[in-house]
Amino acid sequence: MADAAPTRARRPARQPRRSVGRAGVGRPGVVWALPGALFFVFFAVAPMLLVGALAFTDWDGIGTPSWTGMSNWSRLWDDPETHQAIRLSLVLTVLTWVFQTPLALLLGVWAAGRQRNRAVLSAVFFLPLLGSSVALALVWKSLLDPNFGLVADIGPALGFADGDLLGSSNGAFGAILFVTAWQFIPLHTLIYQGGARAIPRSLYDAAAIDGAGTVRQFFSITLPQLRNTVVTSSVIMVVGALTFFDTVLILTKGGPGTDTTIVPYLMYKNGFQAFDLGYASAVATILVFVATTVSLLLVRLTGFAAMRSTREGM
């Protein structure tokens, strides 16, 4: 509070000066964006360019990187493990979207209502988001222990005899899918809850008068009104799924064999276990490229870039 007071006092004195310089428009100038822009350049753009350059070198982390031209890239092209990683990452991303979106959407819309116990239950659903990914993955690792974990009891019912879930390719992949969904659905629920709250009450009132039931209202009002929210949530979800890492590191270490080695884990394996930083940079560059393309495509194809309002004609 002590800081806030003088700031507030200074503000009126500055305001007129700035308005004069900018023909009365009170918008902040380029200078205001400088700290943020510099931070972004130093900690995001510059490292990304460096990684792009490293992808054309051979570097083991000590000494000087040596230029090797396209050799990392031709290796990438031929490496079956990389192909598998890209395939697994894409499948994981699609399944993540298919699995998380409907659940988050329904939970979010439900949480936007005014039912009894809603606040309490929403708070409970929100809990997984508060834990650290590493701690949560460790908890799940214990739950998935085939002899002492939960999966020892329920594994056979799921089709994993002897609780051998992490040891089977599909089981381990499913575990990653499930644990990350369990962890991130609350975030998307929150986004949908916010979106659903912003839908004008009058639309529902009018629909009710016309005789529309809950289901009809959901499909004719809620869903179309949430169009932009769906895009926002999907972009976060897709980019998030392409960069899942800690859950894989702790839960499966990319195994069994390489059957859950998705691209970010492959990058870590090459970079920080093999110290083959040139090749790891090439993998990272691919990841940056794919994630950027996918999110741009999503934004383009859905018309989100035009920022068309969902309230047109109201």
């Binding site: 460790l138 690792k141 214990s142 998935l144 222990d145 085939p146 002899n147 002492f148 999966v151 005899a161 002897d162 609780g163 051998d164 879930l165 992490l166 040891g167 089977s168 089981g171 069994p256």
Partner: peptide, 12 residues
Amino acid sequence: KNYKSVNYTADG
């Protein structure tokens, strides 16, 4: 039968 799922780091 389930050694593939057993871990050492979490004391399994």
